[in-house]
C-alpha cells in the first residue's frame, strides 16, 4: 500500500484568507437569492417610500416628517442587513448543512465569521447608500457638508453594525429552525422600530414605552442618524432636548459587549433537535 501521508510541512490556509473566500461566497449567495434581496435588502427602502409618501406634511419647522423618517430609517436598514440577515443566515446554515459541512473541513470558526462580517459590511454599506438615495431623491433629504457630521455617521454606523451583527449571531440560536427564524427575529425588530421613534415620532409615544425602548439599541441608532441628517435645531424635539451623542456611543458600545458575551456563550454549530 502506498503511503500518501501529507508532508506535515505544508501550511494550512490562513483564517483571514479562508474568511475572505467565505465572504465572496456569502455575497454571491445573498445577492443571487431573490428572497434575500427583496425582503432583507429592499424592504426598508420600500417602507421608507410608503411612510414618507403618507407623512409628507407635518414635521417640525421647515423639515417635513418624511425627512425625519428618512434619517431614522437608516437604523431599519442596518437592522435588516446586519441583525436579520445574520440571524436568519446562521439559522439557515445550521439547518441546510452548511455549518456541518464546514465543520468537517480545516476551516476555522473565525473564518466562517469573517465571511459573515464581509457580507454584513458590504450589504450594509449598499443598504445605507440605497436608503440615503431614496431620502435624497424622493424626499429632498440634504446630505451634510460638515465633515464632522460624516465622522459621526461613521462611528454610529460601525457601532450599530457590530452590535446588530453580534446580536444577530446570538439570536440565531433562538429559532428552532431556519424556516421559523425570519418570523422569530422580525418580531422584536418591528416592535422596537415602533417604540424607538423610527416609524413614529418619540413625542407621540407613551412615556413608559419611551423609557423601555431606551434600554435597546434601536432608539439610539435612530437618534444618532437624525443628528447627522437633520438640522441641529431639531435636537430640541428629542426626548432630552439634545442629540445626546455621548449616550448614543455608551448604549451602542454596551450592546456590542452584551452581544459578544451572548455570542460566545450561546453559539451552536448544530440544530437544537439534533442533540
Amino acid at each position: 500500500m502506498t503511503a500518501i501521508a501529507l508532508p506535515t510541512t505544508t501550511t494550512l490556509p490562513s483564517t483571514l484568507g479562508n474568511g475572505l473566500t467565505r465572504g465572496a461566497a456569502e455575497l454571491r449567495m445573498f445577492f443571487r437569492s431573490r428572497e434575500a434581496v427583496l425582503f432583507t435588502f429592499s424592504f426598508p427602502a420600500i417602507v421608507l417610500v410608503l411612510l414618507g409618501s403618507i407623512f409628507n406634511k407635518g414635521g417640525h419647522g421647515d423639515t417635513p416628517m418624511s425627512q425625519v423618517l428618512a434619517a431614522s430609517m437608516i437604523a431599519s436598514g442596518i437592522l435588516s442587513t446586519a441583525f436579520i440577515s445574520v440571524g436568519v443566515g446562521i439559522a439557515a446554515d445550521r439547518e441546510d448543512g452548511t455549518l456541518k459541512r464546514l465543520r468537517g473541513t480545516p476551516i476555522t470558526a473565525g473564518a466562517y465569521f469573517i465571511g459573515k462580517i464581509v457580507l454584513v459590511a458590504v450589504a450594509t454599506l449598499a443598504e445605507v447608500v440605497l436608503m440615503l438615495a431614496v431620502g435624497v431623491v424622493a424626499f429632498d433629504l440634504k446630505l451634510p457638508s460638515d465633515p464632522a457630521k460624516w465622522l459621526t455617521l461613521a462611528w454610529i454606523l460601525v457601532l450599530s453594525v457590530v452590535a446588530c451583527t453580534l446580536l444577530g449571531v446570538a439570536a440565531s440560536g433562538l429559532a428552532k429552525s431556519g424556516r421559523s427564524s425570519a418570523a422569530v427575529l422580525n418580531l422584536p425588530v418591528i416592535a422596537l422600530q415602533f417604540t424607538s421613534g423610527v416609524y413614529v415620532a418619540m413625542s407621540a409615544l407613551p412615556s413608559a414605552m419611551v423609557r423601555v425602548a431606551a434600554f435597546f439599541p434601536v432608539r439610539w441608532m435612530a437618534q444618532g442618524f437624525r443628528s447627522v441628517f437633520l438640522p441641529d435645531g431639531l435636537a430640541a424635539e428629542e426626548v432630552a432636548g439634545s442629540w445626546e451623542l455621548g449616550r448614543v456611543a455608551l448604549v451602542l458600545g454596551a450592546w456590542c459587549v452584551v452581544g459578544l458575551v451572548l455570542c460566545l456563550t450561546t453559539f451552536r454549530w448544530t440544530e437544537r433537535r439534533a442533540g
Binding site: L6, T8, G97, K100, P106
Partner: peptide
Amino acid sequence: RRWRSEIGIVLQTATDAAEL
C-alpha cells in the same frame, strides 16, 4: 485543523450552497 485536512466527509443530507 491538520487532522480535518486529512479526512474527507460526504454528508448524507446537506442542501447548502443552492445559489452557487
